[in-house]
Design a protein around this nucleic acid. Structure first.
Lengths: 95, 95
DNA sequence: TCAGTGGTTCTAAAATTTTGGAATTAGCGA
DNA sequence: TCGCTAATTCCAAAATTTTAGAACCACTGA
């Protein structure tokens, strides 16, 4: 399978989970496309390890990257990456 | 989670597998958006039950429906359903 | 009627994904 | 330095998904 297809499947896998799908939508909605673990943990009733796992899946799909300041970690959405596989994701899914 | 989101996740799940992703692309490429099991089985080195499983996942996601004539079954892509969750899927993924 | 083909269903195994407790790492402030 | 908090890593269990053999169903043609 060509490289692009493998990447596409990885992106779809990343979005094929309710928690991660919602995380991406939260990131789309927020002002600077960046949210901290705190916000995510408040939104989803999951353990820290489970959340960490989901962050990693999104990172491996190239959909987010993380930045650490002090104790806190912030995740930033890569809109162009998302749109390059799912154009208008924003318009369609950010309801 | 709202209905649309649940449906969206189901559609992403359906596409989050190499075989099914390719199946959808084959359907996009073919003339009348319809292909038979024969073509799919020739394209993928999987057992009949495994293929049947994949057909069902795509059907449950509302992405295809099937039609039987005689011994043969044909699957038809629902382009509008696909595009309603992933606009321009055709253009982006039908490489 | 019956032999043969195409496809699904049933069942269970293999593989992957999701999850959380425990231990660990990293940074902050006293 | 020490104690505290935030987050990840390690590990294993639970859940889900993918797969195929065996049995079955549906249709065709002889």
């Amino acid at each position: 399978m060509p490289e692009f297809s493998r990447e596409a499947v990885k992106v779809f896998k990343a979005l094929a989970d309710p928690t991660r799908y919602q995380m991406v939508r939260m990131l789309l909605r927020c002002k600077d496309g960046e949210l901290g673990c705190v916000e995510f943990e408040r939104a989803f009733d999951l353990s820290k390890p489970a959340m960490s796992h989901h962050y990693r899946v999104l990172e491996n799909a190239g959909l987010v990257s993380s930045r650490k300041t002090g104790l806190y970690v912030y995740y930033k959405l890569h809109r162009d990456r998302l749109e390059s596989f799912i154009p208008s994701f924003d318009r369609v899914h950010n309801v």
